[in-house]
């Protein structure tokens, strides 16, 4: 599971994340909504151990990201807004490279199977990723999450720039991963995808969690009103 306890980060006196408490259970998809500068990406950077918190704690599957960052990161898969891969490598080579960095070795057959499960067309696996669309690169990112058997998945604006079909396909994959017991934190501006894919929705304002709702309790229109209400407050 993913957990933050009074997690705090300041930049030059400005509080980017303010005593944030989160607990995302296995199988849960938590959508973190908020305007630009609300602290979503900073929260993800803190969970990845890329930033050191000023106060509080963050844990991934029980491992502290400060005390044991490598162990924490081994339980995490991360899909940024733009999955940047090596353009001179093929899809399967990129997957091989990044999964090996995490300490896992797979055969070519296994890697092809993972890419297939992530929805990448078989003919694309051996093409250089320089020719890939954003959606195809996102699928390599999903395959990487599958390859690392991550317990937690961090997504930073994953559907931004995807066409509706690709976005839908991506959602199906997310739900499949959640179904396998992965705890998912998705930072997004996409209210529609948040309502469709998440089991819980949090609204982050000035680094503080301003609201935390179960998706089943709110409709699409209610979510938009709720979000705007928080922004105006």
């Amino acid at each position: 599971m993913l957990e933050t306890i009074k997690l705090t980060k300041r930049f030059n006196g400005h509080v980017a994340v303010n005593e944030l408490n989160l607990a995302i259970q296995p199988g849960e998809v938590f959508a973190l909504l908020g305007p630009n500068g609300a602290g979503k990406t900073t929260t993800i950077n803190l969970l990845l151990g890329f930033l050191a918190p000023d106060a509080g704690e963050a844990r991934v599957n029980g491992a502290s990201v400060v005390d044991d960052p490598i162990a924490a990161r081994r339980h995490i898969a991360y899909i940024p807004e733009q999955v940047m891969l090596y353009p001179r490598f093929t899809g399967v080579e990129n997957l091989d490279y990044f999964s090996t960095l995490g300490g896992r070795r797979h055969t070519r057959g296994e890697l092809l199977g993972l890419l297939q499960r992530a929805g990448l067309p078989a003919e694309a696996a051996d093409r250089h990723v320089g020719t890939y669309s954003k959606g195809m690169r996102q699928k390599v990112g999903i395959a990487l999450a599958l390859a690392t058997e991550a317990k937690a998945l961090l997504l930073d604006e994953p559907t931004s720039g995807l066409d509706p079909a690709a976005s839908h396909e991506f959602s199906l994959l997310l739900r499949k991963l959640a179904g396998q017991g992965v705890a998912i934190l998705m930072a997004t501006h996409d209210l529609f995808r948040a309502r469709e894919d998440a089991t819980r929705i949090g609204i982050l304002l000035d680094g503080k969690l301003a609201g935390d709702y179960a998706t089943n309790d709110i409709k699409h229109l209610d979510l938009e009103k709720l979000y705007l209400k928080h922004l105006r407050a």
């Binding site: 990845l48 890329f50 990161r73 940024p80 940047m84 990044f98 960095l101 690392t148």
Partner: peptide
């Protein structure tokens, strides 16, 4: 600059080793 560093280091390898 290319953005591959974040993905690489997110895999659980120390920056020094990488």
């Amino acid at each position: 600059e290319a953005g591959t560093l974040r993905l690489a280091l997110a895999q659980g390898i120390t920056p020094w080793r990488w």
